[in-house]
Amino acid sequence: MAAHQTNLMTIHQDDIAKLCRLAQIALDDGERAATNADLDKMIQMIDVLQSIDTDGVEPLAHPLDAAQRLRADEITELVDRDRYQASAPAVQDGLYLVPRVL
C-alpha cells in the first residue's frame, strides 16, 4: 500500500485486494465496488484524527490503569473433547479436519 498521506486518502483496488487477502474475505465484483466506496468514507471519517494534537500523549490501551494479574500454574481445565467437538464441521479420530495444507 502507498505510504500514508494525511487527508489524501482514497483506497485503491489493490489495497482492497490486499486487505481481503489478509482478512481472508472474498468479495464479488459488486461487493468490491461498494466496499471501496464504504472504506473511502470510513477513512475520510477517521482521518479527522490527524488534526488532533497528541504530542506527548501516551497511547491508552485500556481505560483502567491496571496491571496484569497472574494465574497459578495449575491444571484447572478438564477437557471433554466430544462435547467441545459436537459443533465442529469436520472431525475424525479426534482431529479437526481441514483441506490438505501442503
Partner: peptide
C-alpha cells in the same frame, strides 16, 4: 476490512496508535 487497514504496515501509527493517544 477497516480494522485490517488501520492495523496494517504504514497505517498503524497514523490510525491505531493515534486513536489510542486521542483515547
Amino acid at each position: 476490512l477497516t480494522g485490517t487497514y488501520t492495523l496494517s504496515v504504514g497505517y498503524y501509527d497514523a490510525y491505531y496508535v493515534k486513536a489510542q493517544r486521542v483515547r
